[in-house]
Amino acid sequence: MSAPHPDIPHVAEARNVDWYEASARHRLTTLLDHGSFIEFMGPTERVVSPHLDLFDLPKQFDDGMVVGRGQFDGKPVLAAAQEGRFMGGAFGEVHGAKLVGLLRAALDVKPDAVLVLFDTGGVRLQEANAGELAIAEIMRALLDARAVGVPVIGLIGGRAGCYGGGGLISGCCSGLVVSEQGRISVSGPEVIETNRGVEEFDSRDRALVWRTMGGKNRRLLGVADAYADDDVESFRAATLELLASPRAFDLDALKARQHMLESRLARFGDCSDAIDVWAKMGAEQPTGVPDLPADAFQALVARIAKEHGA
């Protein structure tokens, strides 16, 4: 790594950035080694959505997706970040295609890793068909990259969470980092409520949303592989940890995953709330899990993992 430029604050200080509040570009530039990020098809190229005019909606010159290359801990990586503040980070045609292109490039470029900073409500409904298909293409390209040995790490902790097809893509990663603020789910709270009624899921019950879909439950269940505080430095440390032993994409790895998913059904299939799941896991005070500070929560994760070998 090159020494930090004298004009900028110390690197550690520069990474004292609130992940949840930061923009996509700010997350990327601070996560990667200082000054190393080079963006592809950036906003100056003005590649915008061809579909939003039909809805009289404003366009953005990057369509809410930032892609490029950089160094991470001194090694070459490709990286992408979704801008949750533009249309909820949703996948449209251009937005999705930028990530498809980046992942396809990984087959030839063979970076040390691809990092994907999710922040998405799922498919952009105004261009739903293109967005849905983009998600399928991203999953295929992502798994093709993993199959040739390029690890893909997902990072989730933004305003929009990681919903819909974004949740499915995140599940394809070699490893997933989540913060407390990161929510991972397929159907969002409002969609469940619209389809099944408020008795099934009350989307206005924020505590219910967080304990069901939020980062703590996702980490405890093993949906995510690492837990980070809500700052760039913590996400960076967790990503480095996952890159030390990324999950393979092969029969053995998928058999292990199958076993994990079936065991979860057997153990927790009759639970009706996250509190019940955490109690069964052995949390001493399951109702207190949402209030646990990060270090106490990490200790709980470690203890449960040790007891169940999961």
């Binding site: 999953m139 949740g167 499915l168 159907s187 469940i192 069901t212 996702r218 639970c271």
Partner: peptide
């Protein structure tokens, strides 16, 4: 996908993603 509290609670995204994989 089944839209329910239980399915999302237990990590539906991971199950669907696993099937695709």
């Amino acid at each position: 996908q089944r839209m329910s509290k239980r399915d999302e609670l237990l990590g539906l995204s991971q199950y669907l993603s696993h099937l695709a994989q």
